[in-house]
Amino acid sequence: MPLRRLLSVLLTGALGVMGLVGLTATPAHAAPNFKAPYPCGQQWTYSHHSAEVRLALDFVRSDGGATSGAPVLASASGTAYRYYEAGGAGNYVVVDHGGGWKTYYFHLAAYSIGHGQGVAQGQQIGTTGSTGASSGAHLHYEQLYNGVGQTISINGASLAPYPGSYHQKYLTSDNGCSGGGRYWVDTFADAPGYGSPTSTTRTGTLYAGTNYVFCKVWGREIRDGAGNYNHWWLRTDLDVGPANQYVSAYYLSRWGNDQARDNNGTVVPDC
């Protein structure tokens, strides 16, 4: 075979091999639209260190709420499986999303689902803890494709480059913002809405009547001249103004000072 022809054949073969390598390195199934593994509106900071496997990130809460006991939510829908590893992951959950994609949630204080249970995106699967080989409460989180760790993406945006310590980067969750648990409450007057439980800048209004709320947060006191007061703030969607704002539990019709219960008497959960 002439040298020119031989080189052409070799080059074509090499390009073909390179093409196959590139193809196998790219996931054949697109990733789900993963969301942060904790509730809507919460801000957590995250870090990565060399001992972490499979491109994992560790998350701790950074908005003033407690990390320990905080709900852990499924990043996407799938089938959840419970496991335990004494010298490593502790209590952990794996959610199989299909198409080769899985997410891992390590060091849980407790499980909120059964083994092999189907879960929806935003459904609580456990609570944050420090079980297994852990020096403090945090959530170790992974995204895998066909068993290989992937750079973590939330809402389609990569979190790379990873920080080497906490409080360099932050992530606010929108997981469950448009769904999940709703608690119905009656309000006796139009309630002013605010962007946070400590803000004094009004963003809108929740009309008097029966309304839904998602969760509660401790914040600034609202008090009237008759001695009635409340420090709890309820996250809800305003009638006038943006979604996912806060109104004072002072406006609840059925309950007293520093209480935040729905119309059935159920305590509204912490955000």
Rank of each mutant, 00 (worst) to 15 (best):
S153W: 04
A74M: 00
G181S: 14
D224R: 09
S178F: 12
Y162K: 07
T205Q: 09
V95C: 05
A137Q: 11
V93S: 07
G19T: 08
G126V: 03
D190L: 05
D239P: 00
L159P: 03
D63P: 01
Y207I: 01
H49M: 10
L108T: 05
I113T: 14
Y84L: 09
S8R: 07
Y145A: 13
G99F: 12
Y170A: 05
Y251M: 08
S134T: 02
H49K: 13
D224F: 00
Y81S: 10
E52F: 11
N175G: 07
W233Y: 14
T200S: 15
V93F: 04
T12M: 03
V9Q: 00
G100K: 09
G179M: 04
A74N: 05
G256R: 11
G180A: 11
A137S: 15
L15M: 04
H140Q: 07
A137L: 03
N211C: 01
N230W: 12
N264C: 00
V240K: 06
R220M: 10
R182Y: 03
K169A: 12
Q143L: 13
Q245I: 03
H138E: 00
P39W: 11
Y207S: 11
Y111P: 07
A260L: 05
W101N: 06
T205K: 08
Y212D: 11
S178Q: 14
K102M: 13
N175V: 03
P39R: 10
Q117N: 13
C40F: 05
G13A: 05
A249Q: 08
S130F: 08
T45Q: 04
Y251K: 07
G114M: 06
G64Y: 11
A80C: 05
D258F: 14
G100P: 14
Q121P: 02
H107A: 10
G118D: 15
W233M: 15
H29G: 05
Q121T: 05
L144W: 14
H231V: 15
L23E: 03
K216F: 12
S134W: 00
V247Y: 00
Y92Q: 12
Y141L: 04
C177V: 12
G132Q: 06
L6P: 01
G16R: 03
P27Q: 13
G179P: 04
Q150I: 12
D186A: 12
G118L: 12
R254E: 09
A80L: 03
G16E: 02
F214S: 03
C215R: 00
A120V: 13
Y141V: 05
H29I: 13
G122S: 05
G69S: 06
G204T: 13
R61V: 02
G13H: 04
S112R: 10
S165K: 10
T24R: 03
G90I: 06
